[in-house]
Amino acid sequence: MKKIIIISLLSISNCFAFNLNGNYSLQSSSITYKMKYLLKKINATSTEAKGKGICNKKDCEFLVAAPVKSFTSKDSNRDTNMLTYTKASDFPMVVVKLKTLSEFKENGNYDLDISFAGQSHTYKNIAMKSEGNDTKFKVKGTIPLLLSDFNVERPELLLVKVDDLTPIEVEVTFSRH
């Protein structure tokens, strides 16, 4: 019996959802890319993203963008190198688009369009966790970005290239205005 109660409670919590309506703007954000070299890992974060969302009764559209140069790691030289590999002087922004139903689930899967380094790619069924309500909500998730999806040459150290998989951790908070 206890098991049934726990399972039903869990399923209720997973089904938790709120309906978005109106215009939203990005209040705070943290976007981090994780790059794996042969002997070290680089995490570079940007908190300078800007974003907006428009929701009607049926669906929502969100747009979040950050300047490529705003991603900073512990190592300034590495950040400058990344500007070269990501062709940041020709394509200075990373842009993420999300179109979804206005019903926002606590644990939902979304299709994200990412434009970066002059290429666009859609990542399908990306699991995102949301919390909050229709006036203010936070969304968290990790995008399994592949550098090859954007024709980005992989940097190398000691003749060994970095992993193609460069996960992007996203945490954004939107509020209605």
């Binding site: 800007k50 974003g51 907006k52 969302g53 428009i54 559209e61 969100f62 747009l63 963008a65 300047p67 140069k69 002087s89 020709d90 394509f91 200075p92 922004m93 842009v95 688009k97």
Partner: peptide, 19 residues
């Protein structure tokens, strides 16, 4: 149809292409 980068209010220097 939707939002564009111009709607986000970035500085011109952020979005400038610099050959």
């Amino acid at each position: 149809e939707g939002l564009s980068l111009d709607d986000l209010g970035f500085n011109a220097s952020d979005v400038k292409v610099d050959k």
